[in-house]
């Protein structure tokens, strides 16, 4: 019983990471740095909550989230690809933009600087803890599906091959007729939509949007992307591992075994270790962050 509760909570925490990390994988494999994931998530949470509130349907909320995430990601892609802006700079600016804009529009739409009113989500009651109530939330299944679909897309479709070519050697890809820029726009839009679904999951699960509710989860997803070496399944395992560590910390909170701040560090510390190559180095896609000539 305790094991089941542990698994259920791990999964609940992992779902937004799974969405955002699958978005991170496709973006980075195409050559676009995934620094905006946090912003897409937060934007998705906000658009999802607003759309759900005004339509009364969480499904419309999901559509709103997807549209918002895609719009933000395309803004990023447009500046990075068409205008050759530095991806790191624009990625950080997108996060700043979304943090400010969601608070601004929160006050415009709901006259509050902190929360939206209650919005319809999946399931009537807030956050049941068991696996059974979890299984009734369609986003859980969508999140798991996102990883599988991403792996299929990357490794089994012509588009996936083009994505990988664009991320590793765009000049070679161009020379054989791959429209690298278009491939990257699509990858960016997909990453924005996926990360936004992760954000929408948070808002709909809590039945409201609150300011800065993603709280760095986009960066944990980015860490999972890197720690998982830009592979969907390995990134998913990283997400589950990070989520399990958080669950353990929550469950041990009473016991005061390890200070919570040290558990918070785990994903980031592991990512640095992976990048430094102490146990098998993580090597990013060769053209990551570079615009085509």
């Amino acid at each position: 019983m305790i094991v089941l509760a542990f698994l259920a909570q791990t999964l609940r925490i992992a779902i937004p990471y799974l969405f955002a990390a699958s978005g991170g994988v496709i973006s980075e494999r195409s050559g676009l740095i995934g620094l905006g994931l946090e912003g897409y998530m937060l934007g998705g949470a906000f658009c999802g909550a607003v759309a759900s509130y005004y339509s009364g349907s969480p499904w419309v909320g999901l559509l709103g989230a997807v549209a918002g995430g895609a719009a933000l990601a395309l803004l990023y892609a447009l500046t990075a690809i068409r205008f050759r802006a530095d991806q790191v700079v624009v990625g950080i600016a997108v996060n700043l933009l979304v943090t400010g804009a969601t608070r601004f529009f929160l006050r415009l739409a709901f006259h509050s600087s902190a929360n939206s009113p209650r919005v319809p989500g999946f399931g009537a009651e807030q956050s049941g803890t068991g696996l059974a109530s979890l299984a009734r939330n369609p986003l859980i299944w969508l999140g798991i599906l996102a990883i599988a679909v991403m792996a299929w897309l990357l490794y089994r479709t012509p588009y996936g091959l083009r994505v990988r070519a664009a991320g590793e050697h765009p000049e070679a890809a161009l020379s054989v007729g791959v429209p690298v820029d278009r491939v990257r726009y699509v990858a960016a839009a997909l990453s924005g939509m996926l990360a936004a679904l992760g954000g929408a999951y948070l808002a709909l699960d809590q039945h409201q949007f609150s300011a800065e509710m993603t709280a760095g989860r986009g960066f944990i997803a980015l860490a999972a992307t890197i720690f998982g070496r830009w592979d969907p399944f390995r990134a998913a395992l990283a997400c589950l591992f990070f989520a399990a560590a958080e669950t353990l910390q929550i469950q041990l909170q009473g016991a005061q075994v390890i200070p919570s701040q040290f558990v918070e560090m785990i994903p980031y510390a592991l990512t640095i270790v992976a990048l430094a190559g102490v146990v098998g180095r993580a090597v990013p896609p060769a053209a990551l962050g570079k615009a085509t000539e």
Binding site: T79, F83, R84, A85, V90, V94, R103
Partner: peptide, 26 residues
């Protein structure tokens, strides 16, 4: 108006500068 309008404008300035520097040079 909510003070976050400034965060939005700061972000807009960053994006606009980052996007126009390479363009102007080109």
């Amino acid at each position: 108006v909510p003070k976050q309008i400034v965060d939005v404008l700061q972000a807009v300035v960053i994006i606009a500068v980052a996007a126009s520097v390479p363009e102007v040079r080109r």
